[in-house]
Design a protein around this nucleic acid. Sequence first.
DNA 1: GATTGACTTAGAGCGCGCTCGAACTTTTAG
DNA 2: CTAAAAGTTCGAGCGCGCTCTAAGTCAATC
Lengths: 151, 151
Amino acid sequence: MEPHLSIDEVARRTGLTAHTLRYYERIGLIGPVGRTASGQRRYAPSNMAWIEFLLRLRTTRMPIGKMQAFAALRGAGDPTVPARRQMLEEHLAEVLTEIEAMRCAADALQAKIEYYRSCEQRLALESSIERGNEHEQRKSVPARTGQAEGD
Amino acid sequence: MEPHLSIDEVARRTGLTAHTLRYYERIGLIGPVGRTASGQRRYAPSNMAWIEFLLRLRTTRMPIGKMQAFAALRGAGDPTVPARRQMLEEHLAEVLTEIEAMRCAADALQAKIEYYRSCEQRLALESSIERGNEHEQRKSVPARTGQAEGD
DNA sequence: GATTGACTTAGAGCGCGCTCGAACTTTTAG
DNA sequence: CTAAAAGTTCGAGCGCGCTCTAAGTCAATC
């Protein structure tokens, strides 16, 4: 039981498909991967670590082209360490910017959800009045906010 | 100077292209937009507010198909408010999950950057020793960390 | 009246990131 | 020994989100 995994096992562990793993290798993102005598892939722990790193880059939406550039630098060995670090630093900066943009948009969505909640209260109240049930009133509903037509 | 903007002006203000604005309208994301007598689009403030909302959805990576569904609900008026709220709540939950995933991956990238920095120190030290300059040593460099082949 | 330039529609095309199909070989279970 | 499962290569195809082209209309300027 050596720690060299078949492509299906790697697929299972990483969540990628075997198709995608071959694709990544084809385009130079992964490799070289060991082979059995008959040509089947066997992934070593170092391959796994690299794939996991690629997945982190993917999570942060690095485009494949940049990953290829990074992989090429990595293949060129130690002298490219500064270049690789710089790539990561630039990418990280973009990622942090984007996280902030998403957080900001998420806040706006939260506000909208709350606005909808107030709409629902008002609508419920109006329809109950319409049906003649003028009780059921718990809190005063804020009439109608000036949400600037956002909806 | 009414507050009804031409498509180019809207493009300028939103960062979308005129092409994309027409595309969004075509697929039912935007609309209806007012027209001049000769058929040119004139965007009202309510259109602008909706577009800005769409852009927030896009920032949070809602797929266009979902935006279309949302737009359709909106077009159906008040009774769909609860459904709209639910869509937003579900989407927001996904967004928060994804923000967390990105933040986590970003942390890993930061760690890798720091690892590279230590590599650079070690490499600089080694090459200076190789050249016979055995001074230049400031801090003890941690020999070589066992970064599990991540690189 | 002619030209310039912003606008219109319908529909084709593109870049990205996979995803799948076809045809074949190897491994494994019964 | 056989049959099914899993692997291989090569190349085509797909879904998404635009992006652009072509052909034409209209408004304003020379």
